[in-house]
Write a protein that binds this DNA or RNA. Structure first.
Length: 607
RNA sequence: GCACUUGUAGCUCAGCUGGAUAGAGCGUCUGACUACGGAUCAGAAGGCCAGGGGUUCGAAUCCCUUCAAGUGCACCA
C-alpha cells in the first residue's frame, strides 16, 4: 500500500494504448480526490476526443487496486479516492522495506588532501557523500564508502617538507591536522610557488625529494597521523567509511600497469607536434570545443599523470582486476571497522570484500569536472564503453565564506572543527536560555547543533554554490532540523503520556477523519522520495520531505474546529478514537525518525 | 574564446524525465484552546519564474538566443 501510486499507474497502463506515459500525482489540496492523472490529455489528440470525455471513459473502465474506493473524472483529470479506513490501517501497519537491488554502489567522498585540517567546504562534500550512502542503503543497494588518500601529491609533500624546513615538532596539544595546516600556510606565506620566485624555486629539489619519499611509502606513518586526525572530524559529524584507498598503494600494487595492458593500444600516440612521444585520449567527443582536446595520460618519459592513476583506480572499482591488498585500519565510533589499502595486507581481511561495483558515484567538487571527464573517457575506452555510463560525478559546488572564495593555501578558511564546536555551543546556549535547567544538555546539544548544521548544508541542491555565514548556517529557526526533531519529540511525548496514564483500548479506525488521512498520505510518500533521491543522486528531497512530515504533524497537532477548539487531541479523545489517533501519531513519529535517520540526523525522544 | 553550473517573492531556497491557481523559511502585518510540549500552528501581504524567441492542447520545467554571476580549460596533483 505504500506504493499505491505505482499500483494506480499500472491499473491505468492496462487500459490505455501501449507506450502511453501515465503520470500519477497528488491532487491539489482544494480539488476532489486523493491522487490524479492527466493522462486523458495525452490520449485526446490520438483519439480526437475531448479529454474530459476520455477521463470519464477511463473512470468507468479502470480496474481499481484494493485500497482505492472509486475513480472520477474531474474535468479532464482522472482522480482517485482512496478507501480511507483501509488506507489508514495499511499505512499504520506497514513499514517500508526495500527490495534488494543486488547492486553494489561505490561512493567515493571526502578525499581531502592529507596535509591540513578540513574546512567548511569539505564538510559539504563529505555530508553529501555520507547521506547519499545512507539513501542508497535505505533503498536496498549494497553500498561501499571509499575515501581516497592522495598521499603522493604535491600538497602532502609540501606539508611534510614544511615540517623539516621549519624544524617543527608537534607538541601533542593542538589537533595534529591543524598544526600541520598552519605549517602549510606558513610555507606559502614565506614562499610564492605560484609566481616561481627564485627563493621558492630553490626549494623545488627538496620538495621533489619528499614526493619521491612519499612514492616509496617511506612517510606512511606521517601521513597516517594526518589521516587519523582528519577522521576525528568526520566522526564528530557521524561520518564513517568502509575503505581508505591510498594513491601510493594504487601505484605500487601495479594497478596502473594492469590498466595500461587493457587500454594502452586504444590510446592515441602522437608522432609529431608538442605531444610527440606521449600517449593519451581525445576528449572532443566528451567536451566539444575544447581548445586542446588531447589529454596526455602517459608522459614522454613514460611516467603517468594523476588522471591515469585515477583511471586505473576506477578500473579496479569496477572489478576489472584485483591487486590491492587491505588491512584493518581502525575501529570507528559505531563499532564498525574501517579498512585501508596496504602495501602488505590481504585480499579479504576479516572476510571483507571490496570493489566490484555496478555503479560508481564520486562526490567531488565541480572544479574537478574535467578530471572526472578524463576518468569517464578512460572508462569509455574499454569493453563496449558501458562502464562510462555507470560512473557518475556528483559535482557539488563550492562553499563561500561570508561571500568570499576560500583558500586553504592562503589560510582563508574556517575549519570544520571550529564550526562543529560552535554549532554545539550555540545549541547549548539556546537550550539553557529556553529551559532554565534542561534535562541532559550535554547529550542533546550535539544532536541539535550538528543536526542543524547538517540539515542546512544538505537541504540545498548540490549544484548550487552556498555561502557559509556564522549567523545563518547554524540557525535553528524556520526550516531547520530542530523543527523536525521537535515534532518527533512531541509525538513521542504523547505516547509516553498514554502509557503513564494507564490507558488501553482497541483502536477504532473508522472514527478517524480527513485530518489523519492527510497526515498519513504524507507518510506514504516515503518510498517515492527515496526513489527521487537515488534518481537525482541528492539528499535535498529527503530534507524537504522531513520538513513536510513535521509540518503535517504540527498542523494536525494544532488543528482547531470552527469554534477554535482543539479537535485532534489524542489523550482527551474517547476510547477507540484515542487509540486510533495514538497509532497515527506513533506512525508519524516513526516516519520522521526514519527520514532523519536517512539524513544522518538523530531524533531524540525528548528535548 | 570555449565548456560546465547557477539566475524563481525584499532576503535564503524548493519546484525542472511538461500537466490543475508557482511553494516554503526569514523579514513585515493579524491571530490561536484557560498548552496531550508555544523550539508550534492558522491567516494576510509580497512573483512579467533574468530578457527575448520557439515547440506544445498545456512551459518555471524542453529547444535556440542574449545578459549576469561562479568555475574549469598543464607531459601539476
Amino acid at each position: 500500500m505504500l506504493d499505491l501510486k505505482a499500483q494506480l499507474k499500472l491499473a491505468l497502463e492496462n487500459i490505455v494504448p501501449p507506450e502511453t506515459e501515465v503520470v500519477i500525482q497528488d491532487t491539489p489540496a482544494d480539488k476532489p480526490g486523493d491522487y490524479g492523472s492527466p493522462v486523458a490529455f495525452l490520449l485526446a489528440k490520438a483519439l480526437k476526443q475531448n479529454p474530459a470525455q476520455i477521463a470519464k471513459d477511463l473512470a468507468a473502465k479502470v480496474i481499481l487496486p484494493s485500497g482505492v474506493a472509486r475513480a472520477e473524472a474531474v474535468g479532464p483529470y482522472l482522480n482517485f479516492f482512496v478507501d480511507q479506513s483501509a488506507f489508514v490501517q495499511n499505512i499504520i501497519s506497514s513499514v517500508y522495506t526495500p527490495s534488494s537491488k543486488n547492486q553494489k554502489v561505490i561512493i567515493e567522498h571526502t578525499s581531502v588532501n592529507p596535509n591540513k585540517e578540513w574546512h567548511v567546504g569539505h564538510i559539504r562534500g563529505a555530508l553529501i557523500g555520507d547521506t547519499l550512502g545512507r539513501i542508497y542503503r535505505a533503498a536496498g543497494y549494497n553500498v561501499e564508502i571509499q575515501n581516497y588518500i592522495d598521499d603522493t601529491g604535491r600538497q602532502a609533500a609540501e606539508s611534510q617538507f614544511a615540517i623539516k624546513h621549519y624544524n617543527a615538532v608537534w607538541d601533542g596539544k593542538q589537533k595534529y591536522d591543524h598544526w600541520l595546516g598552519e605549517l602549510y600556510v606558513r610555507l606559502h606565506k614565506d614562499f610564492d610557488f605560484k609566481k616561481k620566485t627564485p627563493e621558492a624555486q630553490a626549494l623545488e629539489p627538496a620538495i621533489a625529494e619528499v614526493i619521491h619519499a612519499l612514492e616509496r611509502g617511506e612517510l606512511r606513518n606521517e601521513i597516517e597521523t594526518v589521516v587519523k586526525s582528519q577522521l576525528e572530524t568526520a566522526y564528530s559529524l557521524g561520518i564513517e567509511y568502509d575503505l581508505l584507498t591510498w594513491e601510493s598503494d594504487v601505484v605500487h600494487a601495479g594497478l596502473v600497469q594492469q590498466a595500461l595492458e587493457i587500454f594502452a593500444d586504444r590510446l592515441e600516440q602522437p608522432t609529431e607536434g608538442k605531444y610527440a612521444g606521449t600517449k593519451g585520449v581525445d576528449l572532443s567527443s566528451f567536451v566539444p570545443g575544447l581548445e586542446e582536446p588531447f589529454k596526455v595520460l602517459v608522459r614522454g618519459n613514460g611516467t603517468f599523470v594523476y588522471e591515469t592513476k585515477d583511471i586505473a583506480y576506477h578500473y579496479w572499482k569496477f572489478g576489472l582486476f584485483e591487486g590491492l591488498e587491505f588491512s584493518n585500519f581502525a575501529k570507528q565510533p559505531s563499532g564498525k571497522y574501517l579498512y585501508t589499502s596496504a602495501p602488505k595486507g590481504e585480499l579479504h581481511p576479516d572476510g571483507q570484500s571490496f570493489a566490484h561495483a555496478n555503479q560508481v558515484i564520486n562526490v567531488i567538487d565541480s572544479r574537478q569536472w574535467l578530471a572526472q571527464i578524463v576518468v569517464k573517457a578512460g572508462l569509455s575506452l574499454i569493453s563496449d564503453g558501458t562502464y562510462a555510463k555507470y560512473h557518475h560525478h556528483l559535482a557539488n559546488e563550492t562553499v563561500l565564506l561570508e561571500g568570499e572564495t576560500m583558500s586553504g593555501r592562503k589560510g582563508i578558511t574556517v575549519s570544520a572543527d571550529e564550526v562543529i564546536a560552535e554549532a554545539i555551543e550555540q545549541a547549548l546556549e539556546f537550550m539553557k536560555a529556553m529551559i532554565p535547567s534542561p534535562a541532559n544538555p550535554e547529550t542533546l546539544a550535539p544532536i541539535v547543533g550538528i543536526g542543524a548544521l547538517k540539515f542546512t548544508v544538505l537541504k540545498t541542491t548540490p549544484e548550487r554554490q552556498i555561502n557559509f555565514r556564522w549567523d545563518t548556517t547554524l540557525s535553528r529557526e524556520g526550516d531547520t532540523a530542530v523543527k523536525i526533531q521537535y515534532a518527533h519529540a512531541r509525538a513521542r511525548k504523547i505516547a509516553r503520556e498514554y502509557t503513564a496514564k494507564g490507558y488501553s483500548g482497541t483502536p477504532d479506525f473508522s472514527s478517524l477523519s480527513e485530518l489523519e488521512l492527510g497526515v498519513l498520505k504524507t507518510v506514504a510518500k516515503y518510498s517515492e522520495v527515496l526513489t527521487l533521491c537515488t534518481r537525482d543522486k541528492s539528499a535535498h528531497p529527503m530534507c524537504a520531505y522531513a520538513l513536510e512530515l513535521a509540518g503535517a504533524f504540527n498542523g494536525y497537532y494544532n488543528h482547531k474546529d470552527a469554534n477554535g477548539k482543539s479537535d485532534t487531541s489524542v489523550l482527551h479523545a474517547p476510547e477507540g478514537l484515542r487509540e486510533a489517533r495514538l497509532a497515527v501519531v506513533t506512525r508519524v513519529a516513526d516516519a520522521i525518525k526514519e527520514a532523519l535517520g536517512v539524513l544522518g540526523i538523530d531524533a531524540p525522544e525528548e528535548m
